[in-house]
Amino acid sequence: MTSPVHNENNFMQAVINAAPTPIFYKDAEGRYLGCNKAFEEYIGLRREQFIGKSVFELFDDELARAYFEADKALFDSKGTQIYESKVSYADGSIHDVMFHKAYFHTEEEGIEGIVGSILDITERKKAERSLKKLALTDSLTGLDNRYSLMKSLEHSLLRQHRENSTLAFMMLDLDGFKQVNDSYGHPTGDALLIEVGKTLKKHFRASDIIARVGGDEFSVILESISFTESLIPLANKIIAVFSEPFIIDNKKLTIGISIGIAVSSASGCSSEEIIKQADAALYQVKENGKGSYQLAVVN
């Protein structure tokens, strides 16, 4: 006759095997005592291959150390843990997961340990990243939007202060875009703005932050400028490129570009001040006939 304890053990194992999320439990020394089928699939080993072994015998050193430290902190507190992490599944794919773990102590057997489950939150994290990207991205061009630009400018100025470097802020305004939009319609105007975004990305460094901040207005943050004079050939190059016609739907569209540049090497410069100076420089270009640049130094 099968003992009640044996029946209970079989029953509990059947229950956790039915759970779709990986479940495991370890003793006070961090050795695996048991798990469910989902955990075997996650770790890529059969239960008999890892029962009685520690994380240091199963995972690479960095991952094992992270697991061990988290388990030790939980065992010392004799409480619960909930935290997010990235893990590599048995098939080599990287997943975002949430660990739920708790300390346990069985009175009769005198066994202490921890029990945990792993909840896959990969799709949720993808959705969160997509929403965050949407909040920071101009939906038409794929460039940063005004909100993202302002956050980046604040961070750039903080880095400038720490590193005692020089930073430039450009404001770029398309000349003649309204006429194109009025003559050919918004779909053509939108297609032109997309090409403008692509063109700007080709002529700035990968580290430069390019944003569309309004209808036909763009801005660029350039960090770690070696010397102010290096901005002059860059501005002239951009102006020359935009003097060439864009081909959109077999239409030759001619526009131009005006550029206002503010350069800061002062540690106390604020984002408001550098934007104000770049805007004033751009206004001066517009007043003088467009299609050129003006450079201002923020003191």
Rank of each mutant, 00 (worst) to 15 (best):
T2W: 01
N7D: 01
N7Q: 11
E8R: 00
N9V: 00
N10E: 03
N10L: 01
V15E: 01
P20Q: 13
T21R: 00
I23S: 02
Y25N: 01
D27F: 02
D27Q: 04
E29C: 05
E29P: 03
E29Q: 10
C35Y: 07
A38M: 07
F39A: 02
G44M: 09
R47K: 13
Q49G: 15
S54M: 11
F56C: 08
D60A: 02
E62M: 03
A64W: 09
R65A: 05
F68S: 07
K72I: 07
K72S: 09
A73D: 13
L74V: 03
S77T: 10
G79T: 12
T80G: 01
I82K: 04
Y83R: 14
K86L: 14
V87C: 04
G92H: 04
S93A: 13
H95S: 09
H100C: 12
K101D: 00
Y103S: 03
H105W: 09
I111V: 11
E112C: 05
G113Y: 02
G116M: 02
D120R: 05
S130R: 15
A135M: 11
S139F: 01
Y147C: 01
M150V: 00
H155Y: 11
L158G: 09
R162V: 02
E163N: 13
T166G: 06
L167T: 14
F169K: 02
L172N: 06
D173H: 04
K178W: 04
V180R: 11
D182S: 07
T188D: 05
G189Q: 11
L192R: 12
E195D: 10
G197C: 03
T199I: 12
T199Y: 05
T199G: 05
K202H: 13
F204H: 10
R205Q: 11
V213Y: 04
G214H: 01
G215W: 06
D216H: 07
I221S: 08
L222S: 00
S224W: 00
F227D: 15
E229D: 13
I232A: 12
P233V: 09
N236D: 14
A240R: 14
S243R: 14
S243C: 06
P245S: 08
D249Q: 15
D249E: 15
T254A: 12
G256E: 07
V263Y: 04
A266H: 14
S267G: 03
G268A: 08
C269S: 15
S270Q: 13
S270H: 09
E273W: 10
I274H: 10
K276A: 15
Q277W: 14
A278W: 12
A281K: 06
L282F: 08
L282D: 10
L282Q: 06
Y283N: 04
Q284K: 15
Q284V: 12
V285D: 08
V285I: 13
K290N: 09
K290A: 02
G291D: 06
L295C: 00
L295N: 09
V297S: 14
